[in-house]
């Protein structure tokens, strides 16, 4: 067995896991706080990528400024989505799903209208490769790994240590009682939508120089993020993170050692097996019923 290939696949798994986590964090927060499942969340990632592409390739801005603009724009789009389509249906699961699917088609149609259906390329930002104990990866991939891990550490610290992070967790556990402490579920949902969409858009920007930008992958990223939160289980942020990296590993190793389709199948199999034995996920608790207060 080739040790270098195995190690390389491991790092690729970390990379994929980090990207999945950038999508899953939005699902995790928004589902936990507002019981909203946004089917268009994968498209938020893609739109972040397209915004980055436009600012970079059309306007000629610096890549990092382009990506930052994409992040902010999609974060604000998240706030708008929270305010208008979703808020009036809080607690009503079927309309929430309908709104999510409607947003998905809107995003899909909009992207095709504005940018066309084909793959867009974003030029390299930093070049070269680095050899780390025989594992050779492009510098860009090393950087994406670092940013992925860094942002997840940031989200973890935010949730565990800050006043707003605690308030978000309290709202997810019991919105009514959180409201009695002066915490508005609406404000928490807004914050969660902003952060979730901004991080997904950042993922879209980061992957653009590696994979290009393409509308077709929106659905795939949505499904990966969704699998992560189901696998990890609601109510456990660490579980969600662990699930993201498990999925990343499954995809990476199966893609390398079998074929790309096998990666996808492996992810689904993992999910099915876990759901059979623990419907609430590996680390989660059975879902709280009821709806958020004001």
């Amino acid at each position: 067995m080739d040790v270098t290939l195995a190690a390389q696949s491991f790092l690729n798994g970390v990379l994929l896991g980090g990207l999945i986590a950038l999508v899953a964090v939005g699902f995790y927060l928004v589902l936990g706080i507002a019981r909203v499942f946004n089917f268009a969340h994968g498209h938020v990632l893609v739109l972040g990528g397209f915004a980055t592409w436009s600012f970079r390739e059309n306007w000629g801005l610096n890549f990092w400024i382009a990506a930052l603009l994409g992040l902010v724009i999609m974060g604000v789009a998240g706030i708008i989505m929270e305010r208008f389509p979703f808020r009036r249906f809080y607690g009503d699961f079927i309309p929430i799903i309908v709104v999510g699917v409607a947003l998905l088609y809107l995003a899909e149609g909009g992207v095709v209208q504005v940018w066309g259906p084909e793959l867009k390329h974003v030029g390299p930002v930093i070049s070269g490769t680095t050899d780390f104990w025989g594992i050779v990866m492009t510098n860009w991939r090393w950087l994406v790994i670092a940013v992925g891990i860094g942002s997840m550490a940031g989200v973890s610290l935010f949730l565990a240590r800050t006043r707003v992070g605690r308030a978000m967790r309290a709202t997810a556990v019991d919105p009514d009682t959180a409201y009695l402490q002066g915490i508005s579920s609406i404000a928490m949902a807004r914050t969660a939508m902003f952060a979730g969409c901004a991080l997904a858009a950042m993922g879209g920007g980061l992957m653009a120089p590696m994979y290009g930008v393409n509308i077709a992958v929106g659905m795939a990223w949505m499904i990966k993020g969704m699998m992560a939160i189901i696998l990890g289980g609601l109510g456990s942020w660490n579980g969600c993170l662990a699930a993201c990296f498990m999925l990343g590993m499954a995809e990476s190793y199966c893609t390398v050692y079998i074929n790309p389709q096998a990666g996808y199948i492996a992810m689904f199999l993992m999910l099915v097996v876990v759901i059979l034995f623990r419907p609430w996920g590996l680390f989660g608790k059975p879902l709280r019923l009821g709806m958020p207060g004001e």
């Binding site: 006043r163 309290a170 009514d176 402490q181």
Partner: peptide, 22 residues
Amino acid sequence: PEGRRVFMMLSVKENLQVGAHI
């Protein structure tokens, strides 16, 4: 509130911190 309604998945300390949210 009636029925105590402590935040079950938060630590005791965090419950107190949430009480001081404002």
